[in-house]
């Protein structure tokens, strides 16, 4: 009975989780080599060569990687700092409830809010104009659709920092970091040493898989970069969708090349991340 239930769960997982993904990947792979596609005449590596030589993918990947890295660093760093400094206040009922609210806001809404607040015709620009700090909207700094991706990073940080804060508060409690810190103090550690040798290593070691998964999620984020990103380079997901929706039918295959390359990179990263390496726990 147990075996039958297990088999059913595995079959369900394959049907829902594996087959659609594998089918989409195979479709993209075939399209990228010209085997399928309305304007394609059969197997060719031309699309791969075109993407490889244009450098668009690598530019876009580097750009996405940088934005995801900066966003995750700011979010994790900020959440760690807040956990360290304001843990007791954040554990109060009202504040912990407030922390959950940003998690319910969709990315596209956050993107629009950021646009409304920081664009040249947005809220802060208008305040600046009313206060006499600027005399026309063009004097307001480029904070959305800008080269440094300020708007994208700000939206990402707004979206994921509360999540990490809640995560760290939970790990702090479950891993008994408070008691371990007192113990470290009793063994001679000062406040800085407690932070460096107890607080940070325990919290980061316990959550690094989630941190990396969020990094991968940000790498492939779509709505926020679509609203707040610049024309070129673009973040990967935006670039892929733009290529696939092109009127130029050859560019569709190039879009699939980028999608396949991105999928392979993320899959390899995920496999390396989840490779089993745990040693067995003590057995009585």
């Amino acid at each position: 009975m147990k075996n039958r239930t297990n088999n059913f769960i595995i079959s369900l997982f394959i049907a829902i989780g594996v087959i659609p993904f594998a089918a989409a990947f195979v479709y993209a792979l075939l399209y990228s080599f010209g085997i399928i596609g309305i304007a394609n005449d059969g197997f060719t590596t031309a699309f791969w060569s075109a993407v490889w030589s244009s450098g668009t993918f690598f530019q876009s990947f580097l750009y996405s990687f940088s934005i995801a890295l900066v966003s995750i660093t700011l979010s994790v760093g900020g959440a760690l700092w807040a956990t360290l400094k304001f843990r007791k206040q954040l554990e109060q009922k009202f504040l912990s409830f407030i922390l959950y609210l940003p998690l319910a806001v969709p990315g596209i809404v956050t993107g629009f809010f950021t646009f409304q607040l920081f664009s040249k015709s947005g809220f802060f620009s208008r305040i600046g104009y009313q206060m006499g700090w600027i005399s026309q909207p063009s004097q307001f700094p480029d904070l959305v659709n800008d080269v440094f991706a300020f708007g994208i990073v700000l939206s990402f940080v707004t979206m994921i920092m509360p999540f990490f804060l809640l995560l760290f508060l939970n790990v702090y409690k479950n891993e008994r970091v408070e008691e371990l810190s007192v113990l470290a103090q009793a063994l001679g550690a000062n406040a800085k040493q407690v932070t460096q040798r107890i607080f940070l290593p325990i919290l980061i070691k316990k959550t690094w898989v989630i941190i990396v998964l969020y990094f991968i999620f940000l790498l492939g984020a779509y709505e926020v970069p679509l609203i707040l990103g610049q024309e070129s380079p673009q973040m990967l997901s935006v670039l892929i969708i733009q290529e696939i929706k092109q009127y130029d039918l050859d560019r569709i295959s190039e879009g699939y090349v980028i999608a396949v390359m991105y999928t392979l990179i993320v899959s390899v990263a995920a496999i390396l991340l989840f490779l089993p390496r745990r040693k067995p726990a003590y057995e009585t």
Binding site: E175, R176, E179, L180, V182, L183, A184, Q185, A186, L187, G188, A189, N190, I198, P201, I202, K205
Partner: peptide
Amino acid sequence: KKPEKRNIVYLYQEDLLFPH
């Protein structure tokens, strides 16, 4: 005196080891 300056070590009821 601060606890870390006393050279006194308090051992908990449980075997509280640093998990990392």
